[in-house]
Simulated assay, not measured.
Amino acid sequence: MTQVTPPEEQAGLSMRQLTHLIYGLLAAALLSGGLFGLASVAAIVLAYLKRGDAAGTVYASHFDWVIRTFWWGLLWVALSALATYIFIGWITGLVALVWIVYRLIKGWLALLSNQAPVAEF
């Protein structure tokens, strides 16, 4: 006699858990000072892969938020690295880092309150 088990309601991570994971990976990459740079790449790959599954939900805006934050942050950090040759890159790099941290915190707090992140400027 075989025992039949009911199917699980949900396999894997929920969209909410996945979004927390993405924010966590980005935070780990930032807090490690680039030591865990692959964590940010993994976060972006996850965001791109699951963005279609999240369409029409509040999580889709979080995925877009994270993707924009990553690419704009990467651009400003790269430009700041180039600007270090004329000695202003440290200032612009610091501004870029503060902006990235601000967006990460703002997005994660919006997720905790079940809202979409909204850019104010």
Rank of each mutant, 00 (worst) to 15 (best):
W65P: 04
F36C: 07
T19C: 07
Y59E: 08
A83K: 07
G52H: 07
R51G: 02
T2R: 11
L25S: 05
R51V: 01
V77E: 05
A83H: 00
V98D: 09
T92V: 03
M1D: 12
S40E: 11
A116M: 00
L30E: 14
G12Q: 08
G107Q: 02
S14I: 12
P6T: 02
L35W: 06
A29Y: 02
Y48A: 01
Q10L: 13
M15V: 00
A96D: 03
G52W: 05
H62N: 06
A29W: 00
L21W: 11
L46P: 01
I91K: 00
A42S: 10
S113Q: 11
V45C: 04
G33F: 06
F70D: 06
A42C: 08
A81L: 06
A27L: 14
F70P: 04
V58F: 05
N114I: 03
L18F: 11
M15R: 08
G73I: 05
G93E: 01
S61N: 14
L97P: 01
L13A: 15
F121C: 11
I86L: 10
Y85R: 11
I91C: 03
K106F: 09
A116E: 13
A43N: 01
T2K: 12
P6R: 04
A78T: 10
Y85I: 13
A29P: 06
W71C: 02
V58T: 07
G24A: 15
T92L: 10
W76Y: 12
L111Y: 05
F87C: 12
I88A: 03
S14E: 15
